[in-house]
Nucleic acid binder design. Structure first.
Lengths: 236, 236
DNA sequence: TAGATTGTTAATCGATTAACAATC
DNA sequence: TAGATTGTTAATCGATTAACAATC
């Protein structure tokens, strides 16, 4: 009953976020030939208690066996299905700077069946060059290519000042899921999903913790000899 | 009263995460010479209602003027102080692959006073090379250098298989805040803060949305002409 | 059988939203 | 004064945790 409601409205976001981590834990169990994994073991990885894991997994067609745990292979393939990892997904990437280049070459995406199929940049000096076997195309071709190839995802790695315009181009090309690495928020129609990977904002929260931590724990034991040290000594 | 409690126990995590976005909105207002910004305007950027913004900002020493809004400059500098953006922070980075290289060269960190002061890698072919004016050092030097220079943050961009070991090295060097880009969870003592930037996991949740969205909205209007298209046509 | 672990219900906790008197 | 917008309290919503009967 509750399950049907969830199926319809979707799994709660925090639960969804944990699923890939459970999945990873299961892959490890399979590698180590452990046939069953308990909710507590699954939770250990993410730092959540077993009860949370069970609640999360109850949103899937359930699988656990009381007294035993979850069948690793079976649950893993349920998660693969749930997360859509069995489907091929194609993305375009806009902005071939250092970060764009790194993402285009990131080996981890392949495992999840994401292919970055085309790279775009405004810089005429970059257009025509090749990265990981893919030629860099001029930005004007993005919308049309995305539309004709039914691209499902757009990755934005342009500077913040250009991000909104690029997003609009992607949306014009029929893209409805945007992975935004530019340090800004995008204004998009409500049927478009934007996932912000805002490194600068994350850094700011870490900065807060660093600063406050200092205040909270004034005497740091065992942190160096107090003479300050100099960077130069270490340059080999 | 409530404020004191918050000051002591810290601002709720969701509020903290929004602060950098408010800060950015304020910087824009200052640039545009708008002296005051209302909570609704501040919220627009993050997609939260004004009431939420006001509640969030109430954790700071409050500043708003009824009927007018928040003084942009004043609130911005409160946020700078709160987020520790006025303090210089130093980081080491381990793992100079494509992603590590991109982060080392990322221009956005400087604004927030983060300096990546040293780069480390295990690969002897990389050691000795220079990135953004910083020489790459062998991993064995990480702990000692971090300790002597009182480095506050460690950035992990090594493969998942090496991440735990690198984290332990950083912790041995006195680092208590780790920004982890490896697709895995780290086991650390409880006084160490780990912020995971798990791109593979994020991708998996996006993958889920792409898949489910397909199911939810079966007929996609205006997405191409239906003949499928071919990538080759577009390669310039 | 005894021990382990499940799925689920109820209790708790925390964050968001609504509402409104205070005030610029 | 009238209109706008604040800070805060109370109501709502949603997620986490505790507890336990069911069961392998």
């Amino acid at each position: 009953m509750n399950q049907k409601r969830d199926r319809q409205f979707g799994v709660p976001p925090p639960a969804l976020q944990r699923m890939p981590v459970y999945y990873r834990r299961l892959m490890k169990a399979i590698e180590e030939e452990m046939p069953f994994v308990s909710s507590d073991e699954l939770g250990r990885g993410v730092g959540v208690p077993g009860a949370q894991v069970r609640k999360d997994l109850s949103h899937l067609s359930q699988q656990g066996r009381p007294g035993i745990g979850y069948d690793a292979r079976s649950l893993a393939s349920h998660l693969e299905e749930f997360l859509g990892l069995i489907n091929d997904k194609e993305a375009v990437l806009a902005g071939v700077g250092n970060l764009g280049r790194a993402l285009a070459l990131y080996p981890g995406f392949e495992r999840y069946r994401l292919q970055i199929i085309a790279l775009f940049d405004n810089d005429v000096a970059k257009v025509g060059k090749t990265i990981g076997g893919r030629r860099i195309l001029p930005m004007e071709k993005l919308a049309n290519l995305s539309q004709r190839l039914h691209i499902q995802m757009g990755i934005i790695t342009v500077p913040a000042s250009a991000a909104q315009e690029v997003a609009e181009t992607m949306i014009a090309g029929g893209i409805r899921v945007i992975w935004n690495f530019a340090p800004c928020r995008l204004a998009v129609p409500e049927d478009v999903l934007v996932k912000n990977e805002d490194l600068a904002a994350e850094l700011a929260t870490l900065s807060h913790h660093i600063t406050r931590r200092k205040v909270a724990m004034p005497d740091e034991v065992g942190r160096g000899d107090g003479d300050g040290g100099r960077l130069e000594e270490y340059l080999c």
